[in-house]
Computed example of a mutant assay.
Amino acid sequence: MKKLLSVYQSANSIDVALLIARVGIAALMLGHGLPKLEMLFAADPVQFPEVFGLSATTSLALAVFTEVICSILILIGLGTRLAAIPLIITMLVAVFLVHSADPFAKQELGLLFLLPYVVLLLTGSGKYSLDYLLHQTEAKPTYSRELAVK
């Protein structure tokens, strides 16, 4: 019981929490992005909101990029902070432009997606990610003959 009430967290528990958040939010967003990907490549005319003066097809293509490609990057933990930025922008556009006249219940989903993306932007992907593996290999010093001579 004491551990449940503790405000101090181990580094491992934070990394596990980031892994769960990353995989969970990415999988949920892929559920929204894959139907849009099908819509983009369908023969039917594109039915999608035109945002910032962009055509419906261009808006849909940008949404597909963020919701599919950026979600996959977050899922595997590659460029997590950078991948979170387009997703944050997409959720802000969805909430404050596309659904601005809708009731809060319609805006709520976009806000719920927005929160973990902001957290991932601030924290990064954690230890269980490709970002961590790539930075570990970069951080290792290489053997140098000059260092051996000294």
Rank of each mutant, 00 (worst) to 15 (best):
I69R: 05
M1H: 14
E50Q: 14
L73Q: 14
I69Q: 05
L30H: 09
A56W: 03
P141A: 09
I76V: 15
G31R: 03
L121H: 08
L40D: 12
P35N: 03
F52P: 00
I85L: 15
G110D: 08
M1R: 13
T58A: 13
I88H: 08
P86G: 08
S71L: 07
T66Y: 06
F41D: 03
G126W: 00
V51Y: 02
V149H: 10
A11S: 14
R145K: 10
L130Q: 07
F65T: 08
A56F: 03
D15I: 01
L78K: 04
L4W: 11
A26I: 06
V16K: 00
L114T: 04
L87C: 12
Y8T: 15
V118E: 10
I88T: 11
E108K: 13
T58L: 12
L34Y: 11
G79D: 05
L97D: 09
I72V: 15
V16A: 07
L30N: 10
A63R: 05
A11Q: 14
M1F: 09
H135Q: 15
P35K: 01
A101R: 06
K36R: 09
A56V: 05
S144L: 07
V119S: 14
R22K: 10
I85T: 11
L87T: 12
V46R: 00
G31H: 02
H32M: 04
L111M: 15
L121T: 11
S129A: 04
V95F: 00
V98E: 02
L73H: 06
L114F: 09
L19G: 01
